[in-house]
């Protein structure tokens, strides 16, 4: 039902993505040492989500995929974010 999209990503882009991921991983390791109390988990989740987003965008070629697939991925992320907010709001109000 769809036409194939051919796209070649340059090696320097992959290299930059790799460096970005390594930097974020370093932050992930450092965050627990900073003792940010309740924010530690939140920052760790944001960092992990950012890394996952970068992997999906470049290594899994989401950047060059057709629009429907991007919408589906955004929809999935929206559901997961909503589920996490609903769950943890219970803990905040309890």
């Amino acid at each position: 039902m769809t036409t194939e999209v051919k796209h070649i990503t340059e090696y320097p882009v992959y290299a930059k993505v790799l460096i970005g991921l390594l930097v974020l991983t370093t932050f992930t390791i450092l965050v627990p040492w900073l003792d940010l109390t309740a924010f530690t988990a939140l920052i760790a989740l944001v960092l992990a989500s950012t890394k996952a987003g970068i992997v999906m965008t470049y290594f899994m070629h989401l950047k060059v995929e057709y629009i429907l697939l991007k919408i589906l991925v955004i929809m999935v992320l929206a559901i997961y974010v909503s589920v996490i907010i609903l769950t943890f709001s219970d803990y905040i109000f309890r």
Binding site: S82, V83, L86, S89, D90, I92, F93
Partner: peptide, 18 residues
């Protein structure tokens, strides 16, 4: 349907707001 799971837990000790 993703967002209604808490109705199984009304007596579990969940917060009133939830």
């Amino acid at each position: 349907g993703y967002f209604v799971w808490g109705h199984h837990m009304f007596t579990s000790g969940m917060s009133k707001e939830a």
